[in-house]
C-alpha cells in the first residue's frame, strides 16, 4: 500500500479510536449510574416552566442570506488554494489573474453590503 493511502488509513484508525473511547466511557457510565425514572424528569427543561407547544417551534432564521454568501465564498476559497500553494511558480501572470479574482470577491461582498443583506433583518 502506498504511503499516501496509509496516511489516510491513519485517519480511519483515529476515528475508530475516538468511537471506541466514546463507547467505552458511555458504557462504563451506563454500568455505574442509577436510574430513578419519573414522568416530570423527562419533560423538556425550559427554566422550570412547563413547555408550551412543541420544542421544534418555528423561529425566524435571520441569517439565511449569510449561509448563501458563505457557500459562495467558501467555494471561491477552494479555487484560491491551489494557486496559493504554488504562487511563485505562476509568477506575475498568476498574481494579476488572482488579484482580479480577489477584487471580484470583494466587489461581491460590497454589493451584498450595499443591498443591505449584511444587517439584522
Amino acid at each position: 500500500m502506498s504511503d499516501f493511502l496509509r496516511d489516510y488509513l491513519n485517519v480511519v484508525w483515529f476515528s475508530v479510536a475516538a468511537l471506541a473511547i466514546g463507547g467505552l466511557l458511555l458504557g462504563l457510565a451506563a454500568a455505574i449510574r442509577p436510574t430513578f425514572p419519573s414522568a416530570e424528569k423527562y419533560i423538556a427543561y425550559e427554566s422550570g416552566v412547563d413547555p408550551v407547544g412543541m420544542g421544534w417551534s418555528q423561529s425566524q432564521i435571520r441569517y439565511y442570506v449569510f449561509a448563501l454568501l458563505f457557500v459562495i465564498f467558501d467555494v471561491e476559497a477552494v479555487f484560491l488554494f491551489p494557486w496559493a500553494a504554488s504562487a511563485e511558480r505562476y509568477g506575475t501572470f498568476g498574481l494579476v489573474v488572482m488579484l482580479i479574482f480577489i477584487v471580484l470577491l470583494l466587489d461581491g461582498l460590497f454589493y451584498a453590503w450595499k443591498r443591505g443583506l449584511l444587517r439584522w433583518v
Binding site: S15, L19, L28, A29, R33, T35, Y42, G55
Partner: peptide, 26 residues
C-alpha cells in the same frame, strides 16, 4: 459525572440525541 443519571427527554429524537456528543468528540 460517571455516576449521574442519564436523562433523555420524552420528545427528543433519541438516536440523534445520543449520537451528537460522539460526533463532536470524533
Amino acid at each position: 459525572w460517571l455516576q449521574k443519571e442519564d436523562i433523555q427527554p420524552d420528545n427528543a429524537d433519541k438516536t440523534i440525541f445520543k449520537m451528537a456528543p460522539v460526533v463532536v468528540l470524533l
